[in-house]
């Protein structure tokens, strides 16, 4: 037991100083030097006497923007806070989104149908068997993730509801407007009430 305690003290630190590490998923964030990380924790409900998941958000410091939206990432608590918000630091990007590797073999994986997976090497062999389509997707020629950001893929930033009609099209805003009531359309209402 003594050895185990010593090991634990090495890992967690002694006394009040503690090293806390969390596993979480990145979320879209407009901050410059930080990313938003969501960690789900099990919290005990004393009335029902059962554990329930509760999401908790942290802001981790990364000026170089290592991680992208959706990546699963390991974060550590900073000894000194950068700001009031930024309390953590990113250690490692463990699992990038959309690039799944099999932990046993170390090969890359794709999906062939809903809830059905296959290795990428095997898919090429299957295509050879049935006759390859020249228009199909080839993994070797594909550029890394992020070449469609801001052009066609708008999942990298926070998306809000459109609240003002500027006349400029902003793709990071979604329109949920009500149909205009023609009674009050031409009436000029006062902006300010004194």
């Amino acid at each position: 037991m003594a050895n185990l305690k010593a090991e634990l003290n090495q890992f967690y630190g002694i006394g009040s100083q503690t090293l806390k590490m969390f596993l979480g998923a990145c979320k879209p964030c407009d901050k410059k030097n930080a990313t938003k990380v969501m960690v789900s924790k099990f919290v005990l409900d004393e009335n029902l006497f059962a554990f329930f998941k509760e999401p908790q958000t942290y802001f981790a410091y990364d000026p170089d923007k290592i991680c992208k939206v959706g990546d699963i990432v390991l974060i550590k608590e900073l000894k000194e806070k950068k700001t009031t918000l930024i309390t953590h630091e990113i250690l490692k990007v463990l699992y990038p989104l959309g690039d799944i590797t099999d932990p046993l073999t170390g090969r890359k994986v794709t999906n062939t149908a809903f809830n059905k997976t296959k290795f990428r090497d095997e898919l090429d062999e299957l295509c050879k068997f049935y006759g390859k389509n020249p228009n199909r997707f080839i993994y070797k020629d594909a550029p890394p993730r992020g070449w469609q950001e801001g052009k066609r893929d708008f999942s990298d930033k926070v998306i809000t509801v459109q609240y003002n009609d500027d006349g400029i099209q902003n793709r990071y805003q979604r329109n949920y407007g009500k149909p205009v009531n023609l009674k009050y359309k031409d009436k000029q209402l006062p902006l300010f009430r004194v």
Partner: peptide, 23 residues
């Protein structure tokens, strides 16, 4: 997008589509 991000981006350009998630 969750399973194969590279293929997802390739498909957007092939079919002339845009992906805007809900807020």
């Amino acid at each position: 997008r969750k399973w194969d991000y590279k293929k997802f981006e390739w498909l957007l350009e092939k079919l002339d589509l845009c992906y805007v998630p809900y807020p």
